[in-house]
């Protein structure tokens, strides 16, 4: 295990997590990108030794190709995912002139119900309190 890679993985995870907790969708997208790199690096670093490329015919020990096959598709899918998040951000911006992650209104509604519930005690359980 390479100590440099280990440290790099840690830093990338920190940065990615930090960006993911932002309100701006663009920064969330950046976070997704950084985390994607971190995870890909993690799989390769943890899953194989730094040997020769796994192509038959090359001299020396070949490294394990399986993590590479996993990560190869992960890179491309990560790109697609990132584009999707960016399209979301773009759409948000086009429609409402902001690119913020909004609060989940459904969760708010459930929270209001819980308040109602604790105030009124045993509710008739089929009643829709929000109405």
């Amino acid at each position: 295990m390479s100590p440099a890679l280990l440290i790099l993985i840690g830093v990338l995870f920190s940065v990615g997590t930090y960006l993911l907790m932002e309100r701006s969708l663009t920064r969330v997208a950046l976070g997704v990108g950084v985390l994607g790199n971190a995870v890909n690096l993690l799989i390769v670093a943890a899953g194989s030794r730094p040997d020769e490329a796994p192509i038959i015919g090359r001299s020396g020990d070949l490294t394990d190709p399986l993590p590479q096959a996993l990560v190869l598709t992960a890179i491309v899918i990560g790109f697609a995912l990132l584009s999707f998040v960016l399209a979301l951000a773009w759409r948000n911006w086009s429609i409402s002139e902001n690119d913020e992650v909004e609060d989940d209104l459904e969760d708010r509604a459930i929270a209001r119900r819980a308040e109602w519930h604790s105030k009124h005690g045993d509710a008739p359980h089929h009643e829709d309190v929000d109405q």
Binding site: V101, D107, R108, I110, A114, S118
Partner: peptide, 27 residues
């Protein structure tokens, strides 16, 4: 009713609606 009420109260505490906070809690 108590089960549903507890679920709602738990939801209110753990899911107040802020998505960035959910990420933090999950992390």
């Amino acid at each position: 009713d108590a089960t549903l009420g507890m679920a709602k109260r738990l939801t209110r505490i753990t899911q107040p609606g802020s998505l960035p906070m959910y990420v933090a809690v999950t992390s």
